[in-house]
Simulated assay, not measured.
Amino acid sequence: MTEPTEATPEQTTAFELVGGEARVRELVDRFYDLMDLEPDFAGLRALHPPTLDGSRDKFFWFLCGWLGGPDHYVSRFGHPRLRARHLPFAISSNERDQWLQCMAWAMEEVGLAEALRERLLHSFFDTADWMRNRPD
Rank of each mutant, 00 (worst) to 15 (best):
I91Y: 00
F77S: 14
F15I: 07
A84V: 13
E108D: 14
L100S: 07
D53A: 15
E38W: 00
M35L: 14
V74T: 13
A14P: 11
N133T: 09
A46G: 15
M107A: 06
D129L: 06
F15V: 05
A84M: 15
P4G: 08
T5Q: 09
L116Y: 05
S93P: 04
A128D: 02
S55V: 13
G20E: 09
T12Q: 15
H122P: 01
L67S: 00
S75V: 06
R30N: 12
A14F: 14
Q101Y: 01
W105T: 14
V28Y: 00
L34Q: 05
A46C: 02
P39V: 03
L34W: 03
R23S: 05
V18N: 10
T127G: 05
G65W: 04
H48S: 08
D33P: 02
R119W: 08
N133M: 10
L37R: 15
Y32R: 06
E6Y: 11
G69M: 01
M107N: 03
G43A: 09
F41D: 03
W61C: 04
T8M: 06
H79D: 11
R96Q: 09
A106P: 05
H79T: 10
L44Q: 11
W99L: 07
P50V: 11
A106G: 12
M35C: 08
R81T: 00
